[in-house]
Simulated scan of single mutants.
Amino acid sequence: MTGRPPTTTLWRPTGPGELALVRESRWRAWPPRLPEQPIFYPVLNEDYAIRIARDWNVKHDGAGFVTRFEVETDFLSRYPVRQAGGESILELWVPAEELDEFNAHISGRIRVVHEFR
């Protein structure tokens, strides 16, 4: 019997521009990074994503969104967890050139779970 591989829940704080591109992908993929964005960094906990969306994206973009999505756990093992501050400020750093492969391992759809204006 074969089933879906185990997944890990990730969150991504984002602004309206990036979210529009995710919508264009039918909620299945993250858009390519801009030249000044060498990494894509999903975060490992919802609280951290909320803080970024609410405190940074709203200030800079007028709105902030928190997304939740699932990625195959085995695939994620190639990316070490990075502590970007306090104990709960955890991220994965995905090099921009690996984002297409990362997107291919997303299971299901990317969902908006919080919105701030």
Rank of each mutant, 00 (worst) to 15 (best):
M1H: 08
G3T: 14
G3P: 09
G3W: 03
P5K: 10
T7M: 05
T9S: 15
W11H: 08
P13H: 13
E18N: 06
V22M: 06
V22R: 00
V22Y: 03
S25R: 11
A29S: 10
P32N: 07
R33S: 14
L34I: 03
P38K: 02
D47I: 15
D47L: 12
Y48N: 11
R51C: 03
I52P: 00
R54A: 10
N57I: 04
V58M: 01
V58F: 00
G64P: 00
G64R: 00
F65M: 00
F69G: 02
V71I: 08
T73Q: 04
F75Y: 12
L76F: 04
S77Y: 08
R78K: 14
R78W: 05
V81C: 07
V81R: 10
Q83Y: 10
Q83P: 05
A84F: 10
G85Q: 09
S88Y: 13
V94Q: 02
P95E: 02
E97I: 02
E97R: 15
E97D: 14
E97F: 11
E98P: 11
E98W: 07
L99Q: 14
L99G: 00
L99A: 05
F102R: 04
A104T: 07
S107Q: 15
G108F: 13
G108I: 06
V112S: 09
V113A: 14
V113G: 08
H114E: 08
E115G: 04
F116N: 04
